[in-house]
Simulated assay, not measured.
Amino acid sequence: MKPTILIIEDNVQNMYMLSYLLTSSGYSVIKAYNGIDGLNLADEKHPEIILVDIQLPDMDGYEICSNLRANGLPENTVVIVVTSHAMGGDREKAIEAGANGYIEKPINPDTFIKQMECIFKA
């Protein structure tokens, strides 16, 4: 059975695309449209993978990554930042905040699952 994935993404179209790609590939998906709900769902559902956008309405993805790690997220949970916020140093900032990997938007639907799985299985 494939892992459960929590997506924390406020953009409805991005959420739809990510959810579609993941469910089509056999993953179970949990959706959160803001950071507070994402943190609560991570605590309640214990997903194996968490995809986090950086630009969210209530807190940024860096803060979410830090909070996830500080609040007892299991060490084997993989957190991947998926964002269009792709400036110099952003990847490093995401890793410092607790992310395991970083994927830039716009995502390529043909390669996204492989990119994610490379980070998850690393």
Rank of each mutant, 00 (worst) to 15 (best):
T4Y: 05
T4V: 13
I5W: 03
I5C: 02
I5M: 00
L6E: 08
L6P: 01
L6R: 03
E9K: 06
D10H: 06
N11M: 11
N11A: 14
V12G: 06
Q13A: 15
N14K: 10
M15L: 15
M17Q: 13
M17H: 02
Y20S: 15
L21A: 05
S25Y: 04
S25K: 11
S28A: 14
V29R: 02
I30R: 00
K31G: 04
K31S: 12
Y33E: 14
N34Q: 12
G35Q: 02
G35S: 05
I36R: 14
I36T: 14
D37S: 13
G38H: 02
L39S: 03
N40T: 13
N40C: 12
L41S: 11
D43A: 15
D43W: 13
K45A: 14
H46M: 12
H46G: 10
P47V: 03
I49V: 14
I49H: 07
I50T: 07
L51F: 09
L51S: 05
L51I: 10
L51R: 11
V52H: 03
L56R: 08
L56V: 00
L56Q: 00
P57M: 04
P57V: 06
P57I: 09
D58P: 01
D58R: 07
D58G: 08
M59W: 05
M59T: 04
M59A: 11
Y62S: 02
E63N: 11
E63W: 03
I64D: 04
C65L: 07
L68K: 02
R69F: 01
R69C: 06
N71H: 13
N71E: 13
G72D: 03
G72F: 03
L73M: 12
P74G: 03
E75N: 11
E75R: 11
E75G: 08
E75Q: 12
E75C: 10
N76G: 07
N76E: 15
T77N: 01
T77I: 11
V79Q: 06
I80V: 15
V81A: 11
V82G: 07
T83P: 05
T83W: 06
S84L: 09
A86S: 15
G89I: 03
G89N: 02
D90P: 06
D90N: 11
E92H: 06
E92G: 08
K93P: 01
A97H: 10
G98N: 00
G98Q: 06
G98V: 10
A99G: 04
A99W: 00
I103M: 04
I103C: 02
I103Q: 09
E104L: 00
K105W: 00
I107Y: 09
I107D: 04
I107V: 09
T111C: 05
T111F: 09
F112C: 07
I113L: 00
Q115N: 12
C118L: 15
I119G: 04
F120A: 14
K121D: 14
